[in-house]
């Protein structure tokens, strides 16, 4: 479902003497349906960079990133927009929402974008928020006023609202209490059971052991320093 072939990435900093910084080369990776692959490697080794390249907000220098048959490295913006709408979900560490939009609406939005009727989208959103222990009295409020842990749970609910065939998870269990962490691990296992291909970053080793089928160390993709 997710296939990365000989991928490389550079950053060119034009305002700092056009410094060219190679950050990744010869990255290869495969995530099949129903499989969860965990990215490991020290902080700064390129786990998030790789994930953003799959999401399409970081450009690749060369190589291919196939998600559901579309090469994200070469696709038109509108193809990536359609991919994100139907096929590829992303739970990032940051919640970016229009201020003052109620939490229930924020979680239901991916389903509304797919043309689902509002009552169905909201029922699904309510179900997820309840499972993730967000008290119902908060649903009508904007998540921008929530604590970090609550925002994280809203982000997870939003990411799991639509049953995407492919999912990117960036530290989904960070800053969660033990009970909610269990709920999130269950959501991940359920997604795997319905056939989702999942690429994730988990610093929490127990979480990693519970959901990952394989681990990939991104240090293998760090460019070799020229002699």
């Amino acid at each position: 479902m997710i296939e990365i072939r000989d991928l490389s990435k550079n950053f060119v900093l034009h305002n700092q003497g056009s410094a060219m910084i190679p950050v990744m080369e010869h990255a290869n990776l495969h995530v099949g349906a129903g499989e969860c692959v965990g990215l490991i490697g020290a902080s700064g080794a390129g786990k998030s960079t790789l994930m953003r390249m799959v999401w399409g907000n970081y450009l690749a220098a060369s190589g291919a990133i196939l998600v559901g048959g579309l090469d994200v490295a070469r696709a038109e913006p509108r193809q990536i927009i359609a991919l994100r709408r139907r096929t590829l979900g992303y739970v990032s560490q940051f919640l970016r929402v229009v201020p003052r939009v109620p939490t229930l609406q924020v979680v239901a939005e991916p389903l509304l974008n797919l043309g689902l009727p509002a009552y169905q989208a909201q029922a699904r959103a309510a179900d997820l928020l309840a499972r993730l222990n967000i008290p119902e009295r908060l649903w009508s409020l904007s998540p921008t006023t929530f604590s970090g842990g609550e925002q994280q749970r809203v982000n997870i609910a939003r990411g799991f609202a639509h049953p995407y065939p492919a999912l990117l998870l960036d530290e989904p269990t960070a800053s969660l209490d033990a009970a909610t962490r269990e709920v999130v691990l269950h959501l991940i296992l359920e997604a795997k059971a319905r056939g989702a291909a999942i690429l994730g970053i988990f610093h929490d080793e127990a979480a990693r052991a519970a959901v990952c089928d394989r681990l990939v160390d991104v240090r293998a993709f760090t460019p070799k320093v020229a002699a």
Partner: peptide, 13 residues
Amino acid sequence: GLTDQVLDDPQHA
């Protein structure tokens, strides 16, 4: 390009 790509990984100086 895609909005988040241009803002997160801008290419032009």
